[in-house]
Computed example of a mutant assay.
Amino acid sequence: MFAVTVTFEIKPENVDRFLALVQENAQTSLRDEPGCQLFDICHTPGETTVFLYEIYDSKAAFDAHLASQHFKTFDAATAQMVDSKDARLFEKVIR
């Protein structure tokens, strides 16, 4: 398992458009990427923070997500909407 969290601060005037685009990205990831197991989008109405929680089979599956055309399109379309972005990557600890 490979988990990804991303916290975005979105420019206030772009929140609705960003949410529409990130939902499209999540739906496409879940539908078209066999290694994408979970892609949750969290947002509190009236606020500018958007939090993503994603689960992939492996780092290779996440790398495939980053290389996908739909992700590249999303990333380019939203680049100017974002004030800040904090992405964190986690690997499952096996004992």
Results as ranks from 00 to 15, higher is better:
residue 35 G to Y: 01
residue 34 P to E: 13
residue 66 L to C: 10
residue 77 A to T: 05
residue 45 P to I: 01
residue 18 F to P: 07
residue 38 L to S: 11
residue 93 V to F: 05
residue 76 A to Q: 13
residue 28 T to F: 00
residue 8 F to C: 13
residue 3 A to T: 13
residue 40 D to Y: 14
residue 10 I to Y: 04
residue 83 D to T: 10
residue 82 V to M: 09
residue 62 F to I: 06
residue 41 I to F: 05
residue 95 R to W: 01
residue 14 N to G: 08
residue 83 D to R: 15
residue 62 F to N: 12
residue 85 K to F: 07
residue 55 I to T: 10
residue 43 H to Q: 09
residue 42 C to D: 12
residue 32 D to M: 11
residue 12 P to A: 08
residue 56 Y to N: 08
residue 86 D to N: 15
residue 58 S to E: 02
residue 50 V to H: 13
residue 83 D to S: 13
residue 55 I to Y: 10
residue 86 D to A: 14
residue 9 E to K: 12
residue 10 I to E: 01
residue 65 H to N: 06
residue 83 D to M: 15
residue 90 F to V: 09
residue 62 F to W: 14
residue 41 I to G: 07
residue 31 R to I: 05
residue 60 A to M: 03
residue 53 Y to P: 04
residue 67 A to T: 05
residue 25 N to C: 10
residue 44 T to A: 08
residue 26 A to Q: 09
residue 67 A to N: 14
residue 34 P to Q: 11
residue 3 A to P: 08
residue 54 E to G: 03
residue 42 C to R: 06
residue 83 D to Y: 12
residue 83 D to Q: 14
residue 12 P to V: 05
residue 82 V to C: 02
residue 21 L to C: 05
residue 39 F to G: 04
residue 22 V to N: 02
residue 76 A to V: 01
residue 16 D to N: 08
residue 35 G to W: 01
residue 92 K to R: 12
residue 9 E to A: 15
residue 73 T to M: 07
residue 4 V to T: 06
residue 95 R to N: 03
residue 45 P to L: 02
residue 6 V to T: 11
residue 59 K to L: 13
residue 78 T to L: 00
residue 81 M to T: 04
residue 51 F to N: 09
residue 51 F to D: 07
residue 86 D to Y: 15
residue 82 V to G: 02
residue 87 A to N: 10
residue 22 V to M: 10
residue 62 F to Q: 14
residue 44 T to W: 03
residue 47 E to K: 13
residue 60 A to R: 06
residue 92 K to H: 10
residue 80 Q to M: 00
residue 37 Q to M: 10
residue 45 P to Y: 08
residue 58 S to A: 01
residue 13 E to N: 07
residue 50 V to G: 03
residue 29 S to I: 00
residue 35 G to Q: 04
residue 85 K to E: 14
residue 73 T to A: 15
residue 30 L to R: 06
residue 12 P to K: 05
